[in-house]
């Protein structure tokens, strides 16, 4: 009887051991962040720029705001939808989203919420900033791209490269 109990105990240990897999040693394909050398957090109005990768769009009055991921916002005068005219590029390193109310544009810049006055778009300027409110955000790889190395929240991500890695903490 005692032997049976011991056998049963040993057998169940065996079963539990079989469940255990060490995932630490498994390599997967994922994305590695490339950081820009210098982080320039200044908001700047520049001349229109080539599109590399458009993400979100936002419409406010006669203007279209088209987000160039992590770089800034193309501002387009759409007074005539048959002939929209790019008028400015609002450089905001690290941006992914905008929303506008009463000529104040709210955007994320890495972990910060920034308020930009666009009463006069040609002279748009930062008027407020709330730090540390988006610890998870910043510039992530494209949606649905699987594993990626969690980016350093203090750095601006310029882009991503595919590489093999041990299973990272971050994934989309």
């Amino acid at each position: 009887m005692k032997n049976t109990a011991i056998l049963c105990f040993l057998f169940s240990i065996l079963l539990f051991t079989a469940c255990y897999k060490n995932y630490d040693n498994i390599k997967v394909l994922g994305w590695v962040p490339i950081y820009s050398d210098s982080i320039d957090l200044d908001i700047k109005v520049e001349s229109p720029r080539t599109v590399t990768s458009l993400e979100r769009i936002y419409v406010f009055q006669q203007y279209i705001f088209a987000i160039e991921k992590a770089k800034g916002v193309h501002i387009i005068d759409n007074s005539n939808p048959e002939a929209p005219v790019p008028i400015h590029f609002l450089s905001i390193v690290g941006t992914t989203e905008v929303a506008i109310k009463d000529h104040y544009l709210y955007t994320d810049q890495l972990s910060e919420l920034v308020v930009i006055d666009i009463h006069n778009i040609a002279e748009a300027m930062e008027l407020g900033r709330l730090e540390g409110v988006f610890p998870n955000s910043g510039n992530l790889p494209d949606q649905n791209s699987g594993y990626f190395q969690c980016p350093d929240p203090g750095k601006a991500v310029e882009g991503w490269v595919r590489d093999s890695m041990f299973i990272p903490d971050c994934s989309i």
């Binding site: 769009i57 936002y58 419409v59 705001f65 929303a99 009463d102």
Partner: peptide
């Protein structure tokens, strides 16, 4: 509601 824009 103020003068609010519209996103996608």
């Amino acid at each position: 509601a103020g003068n609010v824009g519209q996103g996608g």
